[in-house]
Structures are given as structure tokens and as C-alpha cells.
Nucleic acid binder design. Structure first.
Lengths: 353, 353
DNA sequence: GTGACCGATGTAAACGGTTACATCAACGAC
DNA sequence: GTCGTTGATGTAACCGTTTACATCGGTCAC
């Protein structure tokens, strides 16, 4: 296809070493020689083959990224941040999505490593119990985790404090007068951070003297929100008045399902999500959420990884600040007067058959 | 870092050729030899270096992807489709986002080519006028466009029929009784498809005997929706009652801005978007939109690209079906004065029944 | 004039695979 | 016994770079 360095060298009447030196700016080249070589480069449309370069330098200036899914804006944002920082430093990304199939992590990372990526940025299902990470540690491959919960293994991680955030959500609800809390979470075994959020939430509820929140685990990948949410409200009198969803996408689906169940948000049920995806602020009602600085997390993770590649050793965990962002979807608990309790359900337009 | 094929060969007491043949399944290897080699591979944790392989085979089994942004779910969905198909065929992705900076396209594609991607899938600002595509054509680099508008150059493209879709939106509004239409679009020069949608929309309005829609061009990247939308409604009597937004993200922002202007959707203004991103169906009001099969577009584009890599030549443009998906954000025009009601000065071509 | 030094450039050996071709043993046909 | 064939394996060139080291004028101090 393209011209090689040898073609250029021949055309310019110099050796390949001279061309290489000029192209990379290593070593000095006399001005008139440089001009001659440059002319040849332009004429032949020479573009150095990165593969050849990588092979001889054993570095690719490529970063591997493995995330659960691109369809969730929270990951798309992080990747955007990674991409921006990587680009700024002259690195290119190769990325793969696991689609939440935990057992695929290994193979994806394997592929990336075969391509000799210089380092990896990943979100795994569970950082505390991960064959992939064990393998990376064993082979001394540089990597940084994002979103994952920091563990006793002291793996390099960029994250928010999920436990505290969960606790704050419980406080938030308690401050609004809610007494019966619940959580709707994606598969807990597939997400260490969801577990952390739950732990904080449950602990927070307990600290405020509230009944232990019911925790509903749903299949986030192909979600039937209506069916998933229904059981929570089968028993009307004991039904929760405040729902913590483990992520915003889930919260949005849940709010839709609640509407179809005839439950108003926030009139009957308050809902808060997690992530702070941009679209949440555009919803009606606007989505209350715990916002994570996703783009920034991607940026910081990249910075840390590149620092590590440059030989520096850094702290195991970087914790970035989260923000509990109130929204119209979460309001004060309905006054617990008996009258209210009798009319908790207004059915939607569909005529009963 | 890892063991090389030579290490394995030595450990197993065979030549590198034998190891290579076993690993790739090319050529026969005696059973006991195979076992010996396999043992060595396992023991050393040998993983073939893709760089070395690529250099000698001149193929990388890597696809380059260039899209405007990952933050727009419509592109994230397409990438998910590309990723799925590529993975299924044993290809890996390298991708880059232009962040709508048109002049960056060239450099990004250049980087990808330096990495010797086997082919490219891209969405450029304007397929009819694109130095990047000219260069790719000249160098005979295989690529497939997605989302872009097919042009006279017959470049391989996977898309929906944006013009027809735009016309259908005008029809849709007209059928609902709207008479004053407008469009809010991202920068037209940065998007050939936005132009096509506008052209169809304007033509459709004309065909129905409506006044030419006002077309508002906004900076989509950092959008101040409130300021952008305001001028349309400065004169409230002449203000449009139906708004076509060139994409869903824009529509969502516009709906928010309308609310802050005190305008109800759809009571005062009907809004329809374009793309069919999943979150639209979860909004309140649900977002009317022209849905494109984004994931499928990514999948098909990948299939076509891989076919091209396998030597097949395919049709220039694949047009996938779009769907005008009604939603609560678009409703009948508010009844004007009774006099107007009696004088329907347009009809839809079908005979009244 | 000689030797040290210097800057510009060339030579050739990696890097880690693939693969055309060579080699070699075993076997059967004659 | 010779020859041809076949299957298993080895040898070494090659892919496109980088780079340590060699080379070669020229300049300068003495």
C-alpha cells in the first residue's frame, strides 16, 4: 500500500537511519539533507508504519479500555474523558465492551494484550475477586480501574466513595421524612460498586433508625421494569415511599414503570438514581441523583496510567468527590395521615377490563 | 515481558515453524509433538504477539472507527453494533471521536492508518466534500460510512433516507393540523444528514401548502438551549406550533427550554426529534422521534466492510428503514379560532372519506 | 603533521512473528 | 535396491521500523 522508509531513503539518496532520525526528531540532520528527505516523504506520501515501529520499540502508545457497556452514558462519558487525555498525550485507544458478561473479561483483556497495549483502563465486575486482575498483577501489566470499589488488594483505582454516597442517600430520604426505603439494583454479583452503594444505603437507614430497606435485584441488561418493580408495591400499605436505584438508567426505567403502575413521582414515591448522566437533568421530573464526575474519572485514570507508564508509582486509590444532586423526582414523604393512606393509587387512563 | 515463539520452540525442542503451525492451525503437526508444544505454551504463558504477526502478514484484524462523539447515545449504539459484529468475526476496534471538530478528521484517520487498521467505519461532517474521503479513495483504503448522506460519488454508505424522513415529519405535523412549522438544527455545515433532513422537511411543508418553516441553526456542542430557542417565540402570535429537531439530544434540551419559557409540550408546541435514542421513550412527555436502527447500522456497516476486505464489491449505499415513532411530545395543533377551523386550506392528497 | 574530537551519515542487527522452501525418514511400487 | 511420494519438521528470509555502533570528513589544538 504505502511507501516504506526504505523507499524514502532511496528516493532521497540517504540511508534509512537518516530518514528515521528526521521523522522522529532524534539525532541531527543537515538542513539540505532534511529538505531532500522531506521532499521525498511528501512526494511518496510516506507515513511511518506504526506496527514496524512498535515491534522495534516494544511500545505501542496504545491504551486498552474495557468497560461493561457503551450504551450507558456513564461509561461513554468516562471513555470520552479517557480519549481526550490519551489523545492529548499522543496515545490511541483500543476498547472493548463486556456487555456485562463477566466471563468475557478475560478474553477481551487477552486480545488487548496480544495487541501489546501499553496499559489498561478497566471496569471489572468485581475488583475484589477477579481472575483478570490477578493475571495482570502477576504479569506486571500496568492498569487502572475506574468505578470499581477499592479493595484490600490496593489495586490502583479511580472512583467515588460509593459507601458514603449510599449513606447520604439514606440521609437524604430520611431528612425528607421517608420511613420506608427500598433499593432497586442491577445484579449485585456483577457490580462491586452496586454492592457498596447498597451497603452504605442500608447502614445509613439503620443509623437513622429506619427499617432495613428492601433490596430488589434486577437483570439490568434486558430489563422488564414493570415486572421488576411490581412486587415492591404488591402490598400497598407496606410499600416503600422512597426508592434508591443503583444507576440513572435504571432509575429512568423505574420511573416509567411506576407511572404505568399508577404511582406518581414524587407524589407517591420518591426516586433517586446514581451516576449523574446528562439526560437526567432534562427529564420531567428532573432526576435526583448522585452525580459522579465520569469524564474527570476517565481523565484522571488516564493521567495516572500514563504516569505509571513513565515509571512513577502512585497511590492505590484516587477518590473523586460525588455530589448528591436533588431533583424533582425526590420530594418530601407524603404526610402519613390515614386519609392519604387510603388513596395511594390513581390508576392511569387505561380502562379496567 | 512475555515469552516469545522462540522461547516456546526451545522449551519444546522444536522449531519456531512448528510452534507457529500449531498455534495457527496451518499445516499438520504430529500428536505427540503438538502435546509437547502445548505444554510449553501453557507453562510459559505464551501469547502470540499480534504486532509481530501483523508485521509479517500485513494484516492487523483491526478496524478503525471515527465518529463525532461518544456522548451522543446514537453513536454509542452504532459503535456497540460495530463492536458486536467485529468481535464475532475476530476483529478488534480502534476508535476515535472528532468531538465535532471537522478539521480533526484528517489527523484521526491518519493515526488509525499508521496503526495499519484493515479498514475504517466513519461518520464525517460532509461526505460530499471531504478531503479525508478523497485521500482514502486515492489510497484505496477500504471504508464504509454510517449516518452520512449518500452522494454522487457513490461512496459506500449505510444510512436511512433522511430526506424522506424529513418529509414525513412535515406530513406528520400537517396531519396533526399544524400550520406554522420550524426546525432547530445543529450546525448545518457540520452535518450533511442534518441538511438532508431539513431539505425533506422544507419540501414536505411546501408540498402541503404550508409556509416555509423557519430553520434555526444552533451550536450543538455547547448549547444554550434557552437562548437558542427564545427568538422563535419572541413574537408569540406568529410563533411555530411544531418543532422538528435534528436529533433527539437537541430535542430534549429544547423541550426543557420551552418549559422554562412557559410553553407546554405538546399543549403549546409539538416537538419531534430524530435518532430514536432509548431514553426518549422514558421521558415525560415521551419523545416523538424518527427512529434509526443505529445498532443495526453499525452491524451492517461492519458486515459490508468485512465483505469488502474479503474481496467482494458491494452496492454503494445501503438504506435501512427508519420509523416515525409518535410520542407524547407531538400532538394536535391547538385549535385556533373557529373560523380557521372551517377553512382547511390544505389537504393531504388522499380523498376525504 | 598528528591525534582528538565532532557532527553527519551509513550499516546491520534486532524486534516477534509467518512461510516458502529445504530436508529427512518412512514406505511402497517396481 | 532404487526411486518417487508423503508427512513432519527445520532453516532462514522477510515484514518496517529503531538504534548501537561504525565510518568518514573536517576542524582545531598542539
Amino acid at each position: 500500500m504505502g511507501a516504506t522508509i526504505r523507499d524514502v531513503a532511496q528516493a532521497a539518496g540517504v540511508s534509512v537511519a537518516t530518514v528515521s532520525r528526521l521523522v522522529n526528531g532524534t539525532g541531527r540532520v543537515r538542513d539540505d539533507t532534511a529538505r531532500r528527505v522531506q521532499t521525498a516523504i511528501d512526494r511518496l506520501g510516506f507515513r511511518p508504519n506504526a506496527i514496524g515501529r512498535n515491534l522495534s520499540t516494544a511500545r505501542t502508545r496504545t491504551l486498552g479500555v474495557v468497560i461493561p457497556s457503551l450504551s450507558n452514558p456513564v461509561f461513554a462519558d468516562a471513555v470520552a474523558g479517557i480519549n481526550a487525555e490519551a489523545k492529548a498525550q499522543g496515545y490511541t485507544l483500543m476498547f472493548m465492551a463486556t456487555d456485562y458478561v463477566r466471563t468475557d473479561e478475560q478474553a477481551l483483556v487477552g486480545t488487548l494484550l496480544a495487541y501489546q497495549v501499553d496499559g489498561l483502563i478497566l471496569t471489572v465486575a468485581d475488583a475484589a475477586d477477579s481472575p483478570v486482575l490477578d493475571a495482570l498483577d502477576r504479569d506486571d501489566v500496568p492498569y487502572v480501574l475506574i468505578y470499581n470499589q477499592p479493595t484490600a488488594r490496593n489495586r490502583p483505582t479511580v472512583t467515588v466513595d460509593n459507601v458514603t454516597a449510599g449513606r447520604e442517600v439514606a440521609d437524604f430520604f430520611a431528612d425528607l421524612g421517608h420511613e420506608r426505603l427500598a433499593m432497586v439494583s442491577g445484579t449485585l454479583t456483577a457490580s462491586d460498586r452496586a454492592r457498596a452503594r447498597r451497603d452504605g444505603f442500608v447502614a445509613g437507614a439503620e443509623a437513622r433508625g429506619l427499617a432495613a430497606p428492601r433490596v430488589l435485584e434486577v437483570d439490568f441488561v434486558d430489563l422488564d421494569a414493570d415486572a421488576a418493580v411490581a412486587p415492591l408495591f404488591a402490598d400497598r400499605t407496606g410499600a416503600p415511599t422512597a426508592l434508591f436505584c443503583s444507576n440513572d438508567l435504571l432509575a429512568i426505567s423505574v420511573i416509567g414503570a411506576l407511572g404505568r403502575l399508577g404511582l406518581g413521582v414524587p407524589a407517591d414515591v420518591s426516586v433517586i438514581g446514581f451516576d449523574g448522566i446528562a439526560v437526567g437533568a432534562q427529564l420531567h421530573p428532573t432526576l435526583a441523583t448522585v452525580a459522579q464526575p465520569s469524564r474527570e474519572m476517565g481523565r484522571v485514570a488516564t493521567t495516572r496510567l500514563l504516569a505509571r507508564l513513565a515509571g512513577e508509582t502512585a497511590a492505590p486509590a484516587t477518590v473523586l468527590p460525588h455530589t448528591l444532586r436533588p431533583g424533582e423526582s425526590a420530594g418530601p414523604a407524603a404526610k402519613p395521615c390515614p386519609a392519604d393512606l387510603q388513596v395511594p393509587f390513581h390508576h392511569n387512563g387505561r380502562s379496567p377490563s
